[in-house]
């Protein structure tokens, strides 16, 4: 039977890794959000292409449903994130100094 042994060295290493500022990896939240938006636009384009192909009689309706669902999810995620960020920003701006 395996026993759980506390390992102080590993715990310290894990804590140090977790405490590293995120900016050390060059990924602040704005960049992540803009990448998510770009991805949403990209997925939207592919949905557009699938719909156009289906209307031209080449693709299948299944492909369109799949592509449009993906685009919808990506757009909803991006919009929800944007709303969240803007409301946080407004919250900070309303803070009395």
């Amino acid at each position: 039977m395996a026993t759980i042994r506390p390992d102080p060295l590993a715990a310290a290493a894990a804590y140090r890794a977790a405490a590293q500022p995120a900016s050390g990896q060059g990924a602040d939240f704005g960049a992540v959000l803009s990448r998510a938006l770009e991805q949403a636009v990209e997925v939207g384009r592919s949905a557009d292409a699938a719909a156009t192909a289906a209307l031209a009689g080449q693709g299948s309706v299944t492909e369109v449903v799949l592509a449009v669902s993906r685009a919808e999810v990506a757009l909803q995620t991006a919009v929800a994130l944007r709303d969240r960020v803007i409301s946080a920003y407004q919250e900070i701006m309303r803070m009395p100094i």
Partner: peptide, 10 residues
């Protein structure tokens, strides 16, 4: 399920 999960962000 995806839509409802995203709704949780709002």
């Amino acid at each position: 399920m995806l839509a409802r999960t995203i709704e949780a962000l709002r």
